[in-house]
């Protein structure tokens, strides 16, 4: 019977949580960034304002 198993278990769950949450965060940030860019593109496209186009 392996003693002190809980330390290993918590380590494994912590690493998994960090990796998956980290990946989710990166994906979410990237998705939000490009959604914003696309929205900005739509607003300038169908509202041709006289002002200079706001290039990012």
């Amino acid at each position: 019977m392996i003693e002190g198993g809980w330390a290993y278990v918590y380590a494994a769950y912590a690493v998994t949580g960090l990796a998956l949450a980290g990946a989710a965060l990166v994906v979410a940030l990237r998705a939000r960034h490009w959604a914003k860019q696309a929205r900005k593109l739509d607003t300038t496209a169908n509202r041709p304002n006289p002002g200079p186009a706001s290039n990012p």
Partner: peptide, 10 residues
């Protein structure tokens, strides 16, 4: 688990 103890939860 009988032999692995708690570590089986991994």
């Amino acid at each position: 688990e009988q032999f692995q103890g708690e570590t089986v939860r991994i």
